[in-house]
Design a protein around this nucleic acid. Structure first.
Lengths: 240, 240
DNA sequence: GCAATAGATGCGGGAAGCCGCAATTTGACG
DNA sequence: CGTCAAATTGCGGCTTCCCGCATCTATTGC
């Protein structure tokens, strides 16, 4: 068995290396990559089916890398190992995992044992192992009350990119009013209204920007999600 | 000499511990704290003048902790040790460092030697050691062209919190028009105009939200800066 | 003291956002 | 096929935002 570790922090990298050695004695080769781009390359060259992947790396982030790796070989086992359980990450990961793939999401704050157990479960038993905390959020975000439709999430990203209603309607092929409807739903779910007992809207907040603020604070959006969206936007702007 | 390490990642904590042991043999006690709150408490109890501080911790972030520590004992030597050189962090740190204090800002990506050298320079020689990369940004942000006035930064934070122009004018005791003037300057510096050769404004972007987007992408703002600002805002809203 | 420059304020108008109301389309289910 | 709910669209209004233009104030330098 060969394992690839994709992680930019050298300290964490060597810690993972050690953990793999101990948890998987049957593993004869461990390779390391310090960013997503190198990780992809290694995976392609060595046809490795076992990868540990950090999210949030400088050159190319983990979600991007995992997506292209899974596109080429959907049966690859990937363990995501991250500091954060931001909804933006969790949503990003669930969006790209192929049907039936064995994968995992473990937080860096987890114990040694938990990590090793996850390694064996995913790589040997082909199980899925999702950290309790992460799982909790997944559930919440599927729940219709507090969770967001794809449509709502999409429009959230679009306003977070700074697009006007009109631009969004062009981009998504919707009427202006529909975009605004979705925005209203979004505002409702994010509770950006803060009306008092009287029913007049709170004039202190600009709904559009306030929605972005609370999305960021609640980690529905984060820096790498924005970066990715910005890139896609730039592409769309080019092709007009 | 006593040294306190404030860092939430156990791996990094023990790495720092080792580095201190090697670089500062004259140090008889090394204490560890996993967040800013505990760090403050330790510093107060032990009257320690030598602290290594991570920014971005969950319970209480490094900038907050450093501020209260320096408020109590301005002669404390603090080495900030961070993954990022976000302008938001750099600006936050420079805002709180007392006159003449010995401090440092070293990135986690720096080499072993660089870290140890910094430790000796700051703790023994009372020098300031700022990472090259961080220093570069400091310069840029002082430069009048691309840099931001405090006034501009303030209004940036305010719109990023989702406030309306009117609310900002109330909060900062300015006329509505003045707030809008500052916004215009901000938009100019962030280059959110993107007018073509013709002079008509780009109708694809909502300037206000676009400004937030590029500020986030350029790391003028980040999550912890937002959190702090949000807290201050809540306080102000209470006191009306 | 005076000119010069930057910053603050007021006014007004065009554009964009927010949203209630109502009509239409779509899709799922029996 | 009929029905019902959800999503989409259009219209009209009111508010907020964006900004040019003009005035006023404050600080700096000579």
């Amino acid at each position: 068995m060969k394992v690839i570790i994709v992680e930019d922090d050298p300290l964490h990298r060597s810690y993972l290396h050690e953990a793999v050695r101990e948890a998987l004695p049957e593993c004869e080769t461990v390779m390391e990559a310090e960013n997503g781009a190198v990780g992809e390359k290694l995976a392609r060259e060595h046809r490795t089916a076992h990868i540990i992947m950090d999210l949030q790396m400088s050159a190319r982030n983990g979600i991007e890398a995992a997506r292209t790796i899974w596109k080429e070989r959907p049966e690859t086992h990937i363990l995501f190992w991250s500091n954060y359980s931001d909804e933006a990450y969790v949503r990003g990961v669930s969006r790209i995992v192929p049907d039936g793939a064995a994968y995992g999401y473990v937080l860096k704050s987890a114990s040694d044992d938990r990590l090793k157990l996850a390694l064996r479960s995913i790589f040997i038993e082909s199980q899925c192992v999702i950290d309790r905390e992460v799982r909790g959020m997944q559930q919440r975000s599927l729940n219709r009350n507090s969770g967001f439709t794809d449509a709502e999430y999409e429009v959230l990203v679009d306003i977070a990119l700074g697009l006007t209603d009109r631009a969004i309607s062009k981009r998504r092929n919707l009427s202006l009013r529909t975009v605004q409807n979705r925005l209203q739903q979004l505002y409702e779910k994010l509770e950006v209204h803060m009306v008092g007992p009287d029913d007049k809207p709170d004039s202190r907040f600009n709904l559009r920007t306030r929605a972005i603020t609370v999305a960021l604070l609640r980690k529905l959006l984060n820096h790498s999600a924005l970066e990715k969206a910005e890139e896609e936007l730039a592409q769309w702007l080019d092709s007009h």
